[in-house]
Computed example of a mutant assay.
Amino acid sequence: MNNNANIMAAMAVTPIAANKQAKPNSWYEVMAEAWGKTLDAKASEIESAAAELTGGNDQPSHITQMTALAQQMGFMSNSAHTSLQSVGTALETVARKQ
């Protein structure tokens, strides 16, 4: 096996701290948590905009803003899925070759 595969395999299981209070996670878990936090933040923006809409702010500009937020959420969700799946597949391939 080449040296790059050894490095990738070691990186996949090398613990790093996501934060000082949690137990160490692999960098793959940290990446997934980062995507989750990013998606949570975007969902909060959408919830705030929806609350404004139910509060009577039904102007076309606000509805357009909500549409843009929803599109951003969809794009980010797809990106998270693709990146996690790609890295997971790569790690699986590396592990198989060891």
Rank of each mutant, 00 (worst) to 15 (best):
residue 37 K to M: 08
residue 88 G to V: 00
residue 85 Q to I: 02
residue 63 I to F: 01
residue 69 L to G: 05
residue 87 V to A: 15
residue 86 S to T: 07
residue 82 T to H: 04
residue 72 Q to M: 09
residue 25 N to C: 07
residue 76 M to T: 11
residue 63 I to T: 06
residue 30 V to Y: 00
residue 51 A to E: 12
residue 24 P to I: 08
residue 28 Y to C: 03
residue 85 Q to D: 08
residue 29 E to W: 00
residue 91 L to Q: 14
residue 57 N to C: 04
residue 43 A to P: 04
residue 60 P to C: 09
residue 35 W to R: 03
residue 58 D to V: 15
residue 77 S to V: 06
residue 63 I to L: 08
residue 82 T to A: 12
residue 34 A to Y: 10
residue 40 D to S: 03
residue 39 L to E: 06
residue 56 G to W: 00
residue 26 S to F: 05
residue 48 S to V: 15
residue 29 E to H: 04
residue 87 V to Y: 14
residue 64 T to L: 08
residue 61 S to R: 08
residue 54 T to M: 08
residue 82 T to W: 01
residue 54 T to L: 08
residue 73 M to A: 14
residue 41 A to I: 06
residue 71 Q to G: 10
residue 39 L to W: 01
residue 72 Q to L: 13
residue 25 N to L: 14
residue 86 S to G: 04
residue 66 M to T: 10
residue 77 S to Y: 03
residue 45 E to R: 04
residue 51 A to S: 11
residue 64 T to I: 02
residue 37 K to C: 06
residue 19 N to M: 08
residue 47 E to Q: 11
residue 70 A to C: 03
residue 43 A to L: 07
residue 49 A to P: 06
residue 88 G to F: 01
residue 80 A to G: 09
residue 67 T to V: 03
residue 23 K to Y: 00
residue 18 A to M: 04
residue 82 T to G: 01
residue 62 H to Y: 07
residue 43 A to W: 02
residue 81 H to Q: 12
residue 39 L to G: 07
residue 63 I to W: 02
residue 18 A to W: 00
residue 62 H to P: 05
residue 52 E to M: 07
residue 55 G to C: 02
residue 40 D to T: 12
residue 44 S to G: 13
residue 77 S to Q: 12
residue 61 S to P: 02
residue 35 W to T: 01
residue 46 I to F: 01
residue 41 A to P: 01
residue 52 E to G: 05
residue 67 T to P: 03
residue 62 H to N: 13
residue 43 A to N: 10
residue 37 K to Q: 11
residue 85 Q to H: 03
residue 46 I to V: 09
residue 60 P to L: 13
residue 20 K to C: 04
residue 27 W to E: 02
residue 29 E to M: 12
residue 51 A to I: 11
residue 29 E to F: 05
residue 25 N to A: 12
residue 32 A to W: 00
residue 21 Q to T: 14
residue 68 A to H: 10
residue 52 E to I: 02
residue 54 T to G: 00
residue 46 I to S: 02
residue 60 P to V: 14
residue 83 S to G: 01
residue 28 Y to F: 15
residue 79 S to T: 15
residue 31 M to I: 03
residue 36 G to L: 06
residue 87 V to M: 14
residue 34 A to S: 11
residue 68 A to V: 15
residue 18 A to V: 10
residue 88 G to H: 03
residue 66 M to D: 03
residue 75 F to Q: 14
residue 46 I to R: 07
residue 44 S to V: 15
residue 73 M to H: 13
residue 44 S to C: 04
